[in-house]
């Protein structure tokens, strides 16, 4: 199945695009998608997920809501990866 992935702020600048479509197996979770994105974009592995368990600083949303990493994705979902926010 295909999901849309969006990147914001510094992550967009690192990956070099704001949006892409990615193929993942049926039943894939958010963390499965992240593993796939690290393969597709080594810069994410090196600059964002520098250690295996270094997920605390990465925000992930699914269809406009913050999600847990074990949530199961559906065809057509929009998943966004972004750094800690800094509005205000």
């Amino acid at each position: 199945m295909r999901v849309k992935v969006r990147y914001f702020a510094r992550y967009r600048s690192l990956v070099g695009t704001g949006e892409e479509e990615v193929e993942v197996p049926e039943g894939a979770t958010v963390i499965d998608l992240i593993e796939k994105l690290k393969e597709l974009h080594p810069v994410l592995k090196n600059e964002v997920f520098a250690e295996d368990d270094d997920l605390a600083d990465v925000n992930v949303s699914r269809n406009g809501r913050y999600v847990r990493f074990d949530e199961i994705l559906k065809e057509g979902d929009t998943v966004a990866l972004f750094p800690p926010v800094s509005g205000g």
């Binding site: 914001f8 702020a9 510094r10 600048s13 600083d57 925000n59 949303s61 913050y66 966004a80 972004f82 750094p83 800690p84 926010v85 800094s86 509005g87 205000g88």
Partner: peptide
């Protein structure tokens, strides 16, 4: 709450360069 969770980011353009602000961190752009 807005500062904690609304997906908005700022870059600071300063005399010493441009920095992404990520929560309390500042990362050179």
């Amino acid at each position: 709450e807005v500062k904690r969770r609304v997906p908005v980011w700022k870059r600071e353009v300063t005399d010493e360069g441009t920095f992404w602000i990520e929560g309390k961190r500042s990362v050179p752009d």
